[in-house]
């Protein structure tokens, strides 16, 4: 295992880096030996059939699932584990928080807290973690809601918002903590088709503003347009990766060709 502070020049440039990451659920190996690098301002889309391990990869990069082997670095700091007398042990939750502080995350099912209004969802962490006063937090929170076009919904509880609005609030909630990387775990998969656009638009704007992003998605159009790099995963491995143009026009592997054909059949009717 590489040492934590053996900072090479390449690693300094990566915001997120994974080396040989593997993950098992019981007997099932869901991730096998994944290498991954994310440079500042890069937008990477991860595609693949369901069960390919793409969501698990994102969750391992965020340490929501502890990975079994390999290493994940955020800003060159090892995430979730530390060296203790030559043995690898889990770090404290506090240390996990410290290391992944630059990461914001958006979930498929939004996970807004139902007992808090839209604004309170955004300000909760500002107050609890950053220690802002109520007024400061509210001001900051309103600015975030404005950024996703939902300032007029500040006082609404999640259940009176549409799916698209909920996801935009969830994005505002993550942005409020001023992350330098945003992880999106299938952010539009739980939405009705007509609501997908508003969420993608917000993400588009973020990417244009230079946010570093990893997006696990089924939206090929978004991947083709916005991504700097697309990663195709299948059965827990990275099968192919590269610029969207190259990947979508000239898929090398049979599995990607198959995947794209299936997708085209379903979407060109």
């Amino acid at each position: 295992m590489p040492m934590v502070d053996s900072t090479t020049s390449t690693r300094q440039k990566a915001i997120v880096e994974a080396q040989g990451v593997s993950k098992q659920f019981g007997d099932l190996e869901v991730l096998t030996d994944i290498d991954f690098r994310l440079s500042p301002s890069e937008v990477v889309c991860v595609i693949g059939p369901s069960g390919s391990g793409k969501s698990t990869l994102l969750r391992c990069l965020a340490f929501l699932e502890p990975y079994d082997h390999g290493s994940v670095y955020i800003d060159s700091q090892l995430l979730g584990y530390e060296d203790s007398g030559g043995k690898r042990v889990r770090t404290s939750e506090k240390r996990v928080d410290e290391v992944r502080a630059p990461v914001g995350m958006v979930f498929q099912h939004f996970h807004l807290w139902p007992h808090r209004t839209a604004l309170e969802n955004v300000t909760e962490a500002l107050r609890l973690v950053n220690g802002l006063s109520r007024r400061e937090a509210d001001e900051e929170g309103m600015a975030m809601l404005e950024q996703v076009g939902l300032a007029d919904r500040a006082g609404h509880f999640p259940e009176s918002l549409s799916g698209g609005q909920k996801q935009r609030v969830a994005i505002a909630r993550a942005l409020a903590m001023k992350p330098r990387v945003m992880f999106f775990d299938e952010p539009t998969s739980a939405l009705d088709p007509e609501l997908v656009g508003e969420v993608l638009e917000v993400m588009n704007k973020l990417a244009a503003d230079g946010m570093t992003m990893v997006v696990v998605t089924h939206e090929m159009g978004f991947a083709a347009k916005v991504a700097d790099r697309v990663i195709f995963m299948d059965q827990g491995r990275v099968v192919e990766s590269g610029a969207p143009d190259k990947l979508f026009r000239h898929p090398q592997s049979e599995r990607l060709q198959q995947f794209l054909n299936t997708w085209r059949e379903r979407h060109i009717d």
Binding site: L64, E93, D97, R100, M105, F107, H109, W113, E124, L128
Partner: peptide, 17 residues
């Protein structure tokens, strides 16, 4: 739901909070 807790943890909110 577990996701509600994960969302909070990802924002750095401590386990106690």
């Amino acid at each position: 739901p577990k996701g509600h807790l994960e969302a909070a943890r990802m924002l750095g909110i401590s386990p106690w909070h």
